[in-house]
Amino acid sequence: MNNAAKNKLKDNLLKYFGILCTLSGLIALAIFIIDILMDGLQRLDWEFITSLPSRFPEKAGILTAWTGTVWVFCLTALIAIPIGVAAGVYLEEYNKKGALANLLEINIANLAGVPSIIYGILGLEIFVRILNLGGSLLAGSFTLALLILPIIIVATREAIRTVPKTIKEASFALGATKWQTISRQVLPASASGIITGVILALSRAVGETAPLIVIGALAYVPFVAKTPMDEFTILPIQIFNWVSRPQHGFIINAAAAIIVLLGFVFIMNGVAVYIRNKAQRKGQ
């Protein structure tokens, strides 16, 4: 075998190895999804979605869990979006560059890497105990909002950074104030980036379990939450609870609940991708 042939062989080997690596993740996900679908689809019907939890697997439903997830999703969004976007705008547009700015930046990047259970403990101390919110939806949402704030802040800053300086200059040169320039030029131009980041952050929040278990979200809540001060459960906790039961029926229930949770997360990610693609097309 001459050198050229050897190189060609190496080239091909690397190519096939790369394909294999790429597929490994996808194959694992596919096997998982097929397995879940096979277990759960039979159980997934209207009754399952609209039933309260029960001791009997065939009677148990996910009504409290998915309404809890929707509650948490909305409250977390309501808390985290304004704070996160405002902080991102401040850091990018108002904060003077310097040692303090660098420190802030490093800290926010670090916060994004703090394990979620730590946020749970923080939430337990601050929201549940000091602010006396108990194991309520509000306490849980505040905790999750803290958890995803760094992600939203970073996404907002990155989106704002893509707005050309020339646009800001043009706005200033016409006599616009800083806030007018931000609200009328910078934010609209970076909206798609911010929205994408926010959706991805929220879809992470929806899948979080650990911090909410720590603050005291319950697996068995026999009613649908009506106010933010009510106790609650969410889909991941319900799933976690069911898979730890010995009866096979609950395993099936867990699979069905996983399908619902995955559907929710996939739809949100899909929306994020759609918004991003649309913005990219507009940019071209």
């Binding site: 050309p164 646009i167 706005s171 040169a173 006599g175 104030t177 030029q185 131009a189």
Partner: peptide
């Protein structure tokens, strides 16, 4: 500054219309 810039307009090197 905002009032000043209403009196003194500016046209930049690269055309920079708003999107």
């Amino acid at each position: 500054i905002e009032e000043l810039r209403k009196t003194v307009g500016m046209v930049f090197q690269k055309p920079n219309p708003f999107p």
